[in-house]
Computed example of a mutant assay.
Amino acid sequence: MSDSRPHLLFSFGTLMDPKVQKALFGQVVPSRPASLAGYATRPLKITDPDVIAASGLDVHLILERKLGGVVEGAVLHLTDRELAAADAYEVDDYTRRRVVLSSGESAWAYLDANPLRPAARIVIVGDSIAYGRCDPQGGWAARLAAAHIAENETAHRVFNLTIPGSTLAGVSEQTPALLAPRLPDTILLAAGINDSAVPLSTPDADGLVNLTDGLAALAATAHAHNARLVVLGPVWLDEERTGDYEGLRFTENRALALRESLRTWCEDNHIDFVDMWEPLRKKPDLLTDGIHPTPAGHQALYQHLAAGRRTEGSA
């Protein structure tokens, strides 16, 4: 295949239709049969009149995770311009992410824009906040697990592998060996606040400098398991109450720098980013020590995540 068509896009719906391809790309593009393991499809109601006009359908398909499932489709070979046209065609319910085809090839695919809605087997990695420290009920992660498993006790699983005190570098080193027996399709990364802290013993050290190394390693690990990496941003912290915490100094400015670094890296690398800052912002009563949420704070964080799982018009 010519270098002028550098992008592989897995299509399982209307993009395989020659009529749609001619409308979007001006021609029928090179393609070949392909399949995607670990997925199934469900219908999605479409309301965008331009998309309906191009496809002739007001119900499209969207992917969801299913252990043992296989979706048949085709790999399209696209130019930069054609990939941009495909992005513009897909409605806001979809987002473009990397998947591993049954052949072992890496390709783009349009997935549910809400990364938790199609998930089945979720692994959570991160630090003491995701671990649920200061909350006897297990924090937002335990609430998410209870709700997720209740939706489908047969197929849904949540594994909380968080370790208090973890940095992104530590998580990226520890995670690969833990994933295989859990068969994850979605990895929630909730770490980084410890990277933003300034060690009192070495105040010139900057854990944010090498932040992207850990993120890149975790993204590669997730992709190797055909799992979707979802990066959760830091929660708001009350700098007036954190003080010098276990030899570390936490500040709001550093947490904001972490938040922006994570968001930018995710945007640049087509990785999902969920902003966790707002639910607790300027609500010091929802933090026990300025850093760790109270049970009510964890409930607010869980509700923030859960609200994102519901989208009008989904089937």
Score class of each variant (00 low, 15 high):
Val274Ser: 02
His156Asn: 15
Gly69Asp: 03
Ala141Ile: 12
Gly243Leu: 05
Ser55Arg: 08
Pro293Gln: 03
Leu183Asp: 15
Val235Phe: 01
Val91Gly: 10
Lys282Leu: 13
Leu44Met: 07
Lys22Trp: 13
Asp80Tyr: 06
Thr95Glu: 14
Arg281Phe: 04
Asn269Met: 07
Arg117Gln: 13
Ala54Asp: 15
Ala147Ile: 05
Asp127Ser: 06
Thr167Gly: 14
Gln299Asp: 15
Ala74Arg: 12
Lys283Phe: 05
Tyr39Phe: 15
Pro18His: 09
Asp17Thr: 12
Trp140Asn: 01
Ala315Glu: 15
Cys134Gln: 12
Glu64Tyr: 10
Ala191Asn: 07
Ile62Phe: 08
Ala40His: 14
Asp93Ala: 15
Val125Ile: 13
Lys45Ser: 13
Pro284Ser: 02
Ala191Trp: 06
Gly132Tyr: 04
Met16Trp: 01
Gly13Tyr: 01
Leu63Thr: 00
Ser35Lys: 10
Gly313His: 04
Asp195Gln: 12
Glu151Ile: 07
Thr242Cys: 13
His77Ala: 14
Pro284Arg: 05
Thr221Cys: 11
Asp127His: 06
Glu239Met: 06
Asp195Thr: 07
Cys134Arg: 13
Leu15Ala: 12
Leu256Ile: 11
Val230Cys: 08
Ser31Thr: 11
Pro199Thr: 09
Asp58His: 14
Arg157Tyr: 10
Pro30Cys: 08
Val28Met: 02
Ser166Lys: 07
Asp185Lys: 03
Arg81Pro: 03
Ala141Gln: 08
Asn253Ala: 14
Thr162Asn: 11
Ala257Gly: 07
Asp3Ser: 14
Glu151Phe: 10
Ser102Lys: 07
Leu179Val: 10
Ser11Val: 10
Arg309Phe: 08
Phe250Val: 02
Leu57Ser: 15
Glu90Asn: 03
His77Ile: 01
Ala37Ser: 12
Ala85Glu: 15
Phe25Gly: 07
Gly73Phe: 07
Pro49Asp: 01
Arg42Lys: 10
His225Val: 03
Asn152Phe: 06
Asp185Ile: 08
Pro203Ser: 09
Asp93Leu: 09
Arg96Lys: 03
Ile122Tyr: 01
Thr202Met: 12
Pro136Thr: 04
Gly13Asn: 04
Ala257Asn: 11
Ala180Thr: 14
Thr294Ile: 04
Asp204Gly: 08
Glu252Phe: 03
Ile62Pro: 02
Val75Glu: 13
Asp185Ser: 01
Val158Asn: 00
Glu82Tyr: 02
Leu36Cys: 05
Glu105Thr: 00
Leu301Phe: 05
Phe10Thr: 00
Gly290Val: 04
Asp204Phe: 13
Arg121Cys: 02
Ser35Arg: 11
Ala257Ser: 14
Thr294Ala: 02
Ala145Lys: 07
Leu262Thr: 01
Ala217Asn: 10
Glu278Asn: 12
Val231Thr: 10
Val198Tyr: 00
Tyr89Gln: 11
Ala300Arg: 12
Gly297Cys: 03
Phe159Ala: 15
Ala113Arg: 03
Ala113His: 04
Glu239Ala: 07
Lys19Ile: 15
Ser314Tyr: 12
Leu248Glu: 07
Tyr89Val: 01
Val274Ile: 15
Gly233Tyr: 06
Ile46His: 08
Lys282Phe: 11
His60Ser: 14
Phe10Tyr: 00
Leu208Met: 01
Ala84Leu: 12
Ala217Glu: 05
Gly290Asn: 05
Ile62Leu: 13
Leu83Lys: 06
Asp17His: 10
Glu246Pro: 04
His60Arg: 09
Phe273Glu: 05
Val235Gly: 08
Val99Trp: 00
Ala190Ser: 15
Leu76Cys: 04
Ala119Asp: 08
Arg97Met: 00
Ile163Val: 15
